[in-house]
Design a protein around this nucleic acid. Structure first.
Lengths: 314, 314
DNA sequence: GGCGCTTGATACCCTGAAAGTATCAGGTAT
DNA sequence: ATACCTGATACTTTCAGGGTATCAAGCGCC
């Protein structure tokens, strides 16, 4: 297949862009001498170039008149085609340069449940503002799927929390969030400004997500253990949104990342932990192939860093 | 304006089609050495060409791996663009060649009243069959308009009868037609198979067309004079169709070219002249600029000759 | 782990094609 | 008739692209 396709392409031996550029100028000037001046070459080589072109095409392009040259019908057609081609080359060059700077291209990005609630949309919005010509496709994937998809090159980056360290996957920290307690407003504890973790020891706890370790479920259990108790597990669910929905229905409480609090559901209030133990926080990170040379990805990671530096002081 | 437009085009210095063709093959092979073999050059110059291209664009197009080369995102984009450009060059080349052979292009052709009745449509149909990609635009013009339009290059060819000889306008004979008498079937003469011209000396004659000399009106009068009489003029009209319509209404008789007889109107019959005097015939000719180099026109004129040679024996 | 094979990159030379110089030939206009 | 355009041609020169030889680096196979 390759042989055939390139055989077709290589048909046009001999003809070079130089010929097209020269011909365009000659056609514009209607005079070979003046055209040569504009091309910064002398007249004879230009005459020869045009002859070569006519020879190569097997068609007369110019009619020599006493005061210059006129285009034949074929010449007129070829001039249009040549203009198109030259401007296409220019465009190709520019587009490739922009692609090289990461300003043009496509990013396939995997997101997961609770990450989408606040930081990722903001980040993507920022990026789109700086790189409007980069097309972003979002895919919802759980952590293990993200890693597999990265390795298979189906995606360029993914967002997740609590990542295992892997040799071929690099990470970029987006933000570190405090943990909040999502609690039903009918519960007496919901009146307090902050809640000591120990206070929920006897309240049923909704855990999430299910899936491979390490995950946020594990994190939640560890935080409780560090506070000196083992929680009563009310229910295990797949994602933060479902967990908070259960909180709204009075199933129990849930420990969620700070950013989840943008999700308002009736009867759900979010309370900071009183005296949070060390480790009562969770990272949101961007993962990508460690050796991915894509300039678009590079630009995206820079945007990630800019976002992080921007919100960390605040 | 020319300076600006070409300045834009000439932006892409350095880059030549050679670079694009080479890059495509390299991208296809994923291996510079093999690509060089396929391009029938050795490996070092190909390496250099790719470097030149990357230099020129200011973008890395290839990632060198131990087993060959991979495309960067920019490289992948540029490869698509390069393919497009190369195939466009090929197409341009082919189209120009076809234009040079007269197989592609546009013909603006002027026609006039009675010529359109038989020969011109047949001729155009033949031409279209051989040259399907030539677009033909028809314009209805009287003789003087045709000549003016030819000189102003608004048309490529015209059809007419009885043309004055002009230095810059060449002619190509299409057909020579006998003259027929168009007569109302209520007239006693309409019963005869042929009619001697003298017989209409007393019947009102409808003359056409009005306009510059020489014209068919003049021809008609001359034929009558050669037969030894001066006709009674019933009416002068602009074209053959109107004249025949008047015959249908009983205004009188008309002398018309043979081809007009394809036009059937109620009560109109066409009768050959009995013993037609020499000169009782009229040419249909194609006129064009004597120095017009257009290959499309050339092809059209050849079609005209073919048509003439085809109908002359019959 | 060392050796051989692959890959692309580099240094140098050489050929050939394209550009330059000088001149010619044809057509117009004065 | 001549002076001045035009593009075409002959010859020279230059330099860019291609060739040969070789190198450096990475992978895989014993």
């Amino acid at each position: 297949m390759t042989d055939q396709s390139s055989a077709e392409i290589i048909q046009t031996f001999g003809i070079e862009l130089r010929h097209l550029r020269s011909f365009i100028v000659v056609a514009e000037e209607g005079n070979i001498g003046r055209a040569a001046t504009r091309l910064n070459i002398s007249q004879p080589p230009l005459t020869r170039q045009i002859h070569q072109l006519e020879e190569e095409l097997g068609v007369q392009l110019l009619i020599r008149t006493p005061h210059g040259v006129d285009l034949t019908a074929a010449g007129e057609l070829f001039m249009e085609e040549a203009r198109t081609i030259c401007s296409l080359v220019r465009q190709a060059s520019e587009r490739t340069q922009r692609a090289g700077e990461g300003k043009l291209g496509r990013l396939d990005i995997a997101i997961f449940g609770s990450g989408i609630l606040r930081d990722i949309p903001k980040l993507l919005l920022n990026f789109r503002k700086h790189y409007p010509d980069v097309h972003i496709a979002l895919h919802t994937m759980r952590k293990s799927q993200q890693i597999e998809a990265l390795r298979q090159r189906r995606i360029n980056a993914g967002f997740n929390r609590l990542l295992p360290s892997l040799p071929d996957i690099a990470t970029e920290l987006i933000t570190t969030e405090q943990l909040l307690l999502a609690i039903n407003d009918s519960h007496p504890l919901a009146q307090a400004d902050t809640i000591p973790l120990m206070a929920i020891a006897d309240i049923p706890l909704i855990l999430f997500p299910t899936g491979v370790l390490p995950n946020f479920r594990e994190k939640t259990l560890k935080v409780c253990k560090d506070s000196g108790f083992t929680p009563k597990i009310a229910q295990e669910v797949g994602d933060a949104v479902t967990a908070i929905a259960l909180v709204a229905s009075g199933f129990g409480v849930a420990i969620v990342p700070e950013s989840s609090s943008v999700l308002t559901l009736p009867h759900v209030v979010y309370k900071p932990l009183d005296n949070p133990p060390p480790g009562a926080e969770v990272d949101l990170t961007c993962i990508y192939r460690a050796n991915d040379p894509s300039p678009v990805l590079k630009a995206f990671l820079e945007e990630c860093r800019r976002y992080r530096d921007q919100i960390l002081p605040a």
